[in-house]
Amino acid sequence: MQTDKVISVSNLTKKFGDFTAVDNISFDCVKGEIFGFLGANGAGKTTAMRMLCGLSLPTSGEASVAGFDVYKESELIKKKIGYMSQKFSLYEDLTVWENIRFYAGIYGLSDSNIREKSRQLLTELHLEGQENALVRSLPLGWKQKLAFSVAIVHNPAIVFLDEPTGGVDPITRREFWGLIYEASARDITVFVTTHYMDEAEYCNRVSIMVDGKIEALDTPANLKQHYNADSMDEVFLHLARTATRSQD
């Protein structure tokens, strides 16, 4: 169904001088899908994601996010998406509650809505009683879960997650994916990059980028079958070994 497409990318390219970071990629994402965006370090995942979020201008190709063009309507896209960058991006010197209020506020939620949302969010994350703690003082896993919840506090159509579980322990990672499934159940499309292959198995569809190109895109089950592999790990290694770009 055409209307279900929330991200549609065709021949998208980003060049930095002579270097082609993202080379002619094309794909679509549908509503409520969990789309895994895999690739070795330096494969161009973050660059592609930044173009879709309106943080970086594409060199050529076309892309629309939430029905808006990335060239001309990037500010409209920004109302419809959530973003969680590789770098932790809540304010460490603000409390949990102040962060929630700030991010909910700048996305235009009403005061009563903000109060209700934050109460709900604190319960979900088991952070009741911690609302006045500085974010700086929280353990990393909690910070990441909070950052994710804040990124979707305004109920976006799509949430972009750039390696959200880096450095997080396995139990918290599992909890984090619980949050992702909940978001997906609320029809939020989740666009996620990761280096953990067990997480790739949790995705509805997975794309694997090698040297700026998308080399494979399918459901994890189909990919394993196609490459005759037992796990996503094998699929990834099979493809990533062909990379010629030096890894950072």
Binding site: G54, K78, Y83, S85, F88, S89, I106
Partner: peptide, 14 residues
């Protein structure tokens, strides 16, 4: 430096 500006840039703040 903290990276929070990116979060601002990806929001509809003018």
């Amino acid at each position: 430096e903290m990276g929070t500006i990116e979060q601002i840039n990806v929001s509809p703040i003018k």
